[in-house]
Amino acid sequence: MRGPRHGMLHGVERDYSLVLVVGEEDLLVDRAVADAVGTAREADPEADVHEVFGGSLAPGELAELAAPSLFGGRRVIVIRSAQDVAKGVLGEVTGYAKGLPPDVALVLVHAGGAKGKSLLDAVTQAGAHVITCPKVSKPSERVNFIRAEVRRAGGTITEDAARTLLDAVGNDLRELAGACGQLVSDTAGVVDGAAVARYHRGRAEVSGFTVADRAVEGRSADALEQLRWALTTGVSPVLITSALAQGLRSLSKVGSAPRNLRGPALARELGMPAWKVDRVRQQLRGWTGEGVARALKAVAEADAQVKGGGADPAYALERAIMEIAEARAFR
């Protein structure tokens, strides 16, 4: 199912007995560590692998782990959270990094921040093979990650399909990687929008703003559905009330703007991006000032309920959405 495991480490004339993995993206870090351990295992299938955490590394422990055993096998030592290594042990670790005994491979995992920077520098200088695993945080980076994952699994995916998959599965890289592997094996390699839609329905992550948009558009059934999604995926009720309030504020803002302004001038006057102004104009249909007033009162009531005034935040929010729909119809 997966491609060659240690592909990126092959075919280069270099010594991989000292590896430094820098970064906080867990999935990528784990893969890099597994790769490094795999390389060592290739050289000696019997190799002993020891994993320790930097913070709990005691003086002398490294020497003990690195000492040759009676049977003379290879030893692989993985130090996780190397940034936590205590000051007293630091010299020992850098000492080993500079002069590794034969038959010992050392893999350091470092978060990459300012903490433990001296160790990071020392090990880099010692000629470690550095693998960086930065956090994947932007949507575009996630899309690239999905495409790379599918390629890795031996398939191809269009950018649109990758986006749909991201919407459906959510932002967790492990789940995304799992979904990519599954899709490739289910579709014989070519993953397109239709395939994603067949296996993944709905949206995994709904923000309060989606709920608010549906609610002020008067589509209360949709809004309630999105609300359920949002609450199940762990969006805080407080964020939803504030998004609802924000939506109503925008209505009032655009609704009471000077009539003679249009386009960019209007956007400037309101301090909103032009696309937002256009969308709010669409949403404004069917609303009166008094309606917005009623709706705002309902949202404020929901906010009080969510803050501990009521027993069930979900009920309070549902009620607010229903009342927003009623307020919209209010003449």
């Binding site: 407080v238 949202v299 501990g308």
Partner: peptide, 22 residues
């Protein structure tokens, strides 16, 4: 009362000014 119960200040005050008018 709402402010004392930790409600969002802007939202609570908006609901109030709106109630003064409508």
């Amino acid at each position: 009362e709402r402010l004392e119960a930790n409600a969002n200040p802007l939202l609570a005050v908006e609901a109030m000014t709106v109630s003064l008018q409508f």
